[in-house]
Amino acid sequence: MVTTTLPRSGQHISAASVASHLPDGAAAVAEIAAALGSQADLYTVFVSTGYDLEVVGPALKQHFGDQVIGCTSSGNIGPNGYERTGICAAALTGGGLRTRTITVGPLDDTATAVEQAGSALAGLRAELADDGEGFAVLLTDGLTRNEDLLAANLMATLGDVPIVGGSAGDDLTFAHTAVYHDGKFLVNTATVTLVRAEAPFLLFRLQHHDPTDTILVATDVDADRRIIREFNGRPAASAYAEAVGADLADIGPTTFSTHPLLLKAAGSSWIRSIAALNDDESLSLLARVDTGDVLRLGRPVGMLEKLAERFDAVGAELGSISAVLTFDCILRRLEFEEHGLADEVGEFLAEHRAIGFSTYGEQFNGMHMNHSLVAVAFG
Rank of each mutant, 00 (worst) to 15 (best):
I274A: 06
F174A: 03
G105I: 01
S257I: 07
D293R: 05
F364D: 02
P23V: 01
V29S: 00
K306S: 13
T214M: 10
A287L: 02
L186C: 08
E347V: 05
T72R: 11
D293N: 15
Q67N: 11
S358G: 15
P162L: 11
L334I: 14
I32S: 00
K184Q: 15
S358I: 03
E317P: 00
T99K: 01
S257W: 05
G70W: 09
L154Q: 08
D213R: 13
A265Y: 12
A34E: 10
L186F: 03
R353T: 01
T112E: 13
T191H: 10
R296D: 01
V161N: 11
R288L: 01
D210L: 14
A34W: 04
E337D: 15
G81C: 12
A34Q: 09
R84W: 08
A26I: 04
R229A: 14
A122R: 10
L295V: 04
A197W: 04
P162N: 11
A122E: 14
R225D: 11
A342F: 09
P7H: 00
D210Y: 03
G267T: 07
L262D: 03
E31Q: 08
G57P: 04
V192R: 07
S20E: 13
V345E: 15
T4A: 13
A19M: 12
A122N: 08
R8F: 05
G319F: 05
D279T: 06
G57E: 13
V47A: 06
A223Y: 01
A16L: 06
V164L: 09
D224H: 04
A152P: 07
N153F: 02
I271R: 01
G78N: 12
I102F: 03
A111K: 09
F327N: 12
L124F: 09
I69F: 03
A113D: 10
M303F: 09
T219K: 03
N80K: 11
G166R: 04
A15F: 11
E305R: 13
L202H: 07
T214W: 07
D41R: 06
L121F: 08
G142Q: 01
D312C: 10
A342C: 10
G142L: 03
L331A: 12
P253I: 11
A342N: 12
T254M: 06
K61S: 09
G233A: 13
P260M: 12
A190C: 13
L172M: 03
M367P: 01
L124E: 08
G233F: 14
D24Y: 03
G75E: 08
T255H: 04
G118H: 11
S17Y: 13
D171I: 05
V294M: 06
E147N: 07
L203D: 07
E338T: 15
G366H: 06
Q207V: 05
N278A: 05
R205C: 09
A27W: 04
D328M: 07
L248M: 13
A40E: 13
G340M: 13
S48A: 10
T258Y: 05
I321G: 04
T103M: 14
L325P: 05
A239Y: 04
R296G: 00
G25Y: 08
Q207S: 08
L158R: 12
I163L: 14
Q116M: 14
N188P: 05
R225I: 02
F348K: 09
T72F: 12
G86Y: 12
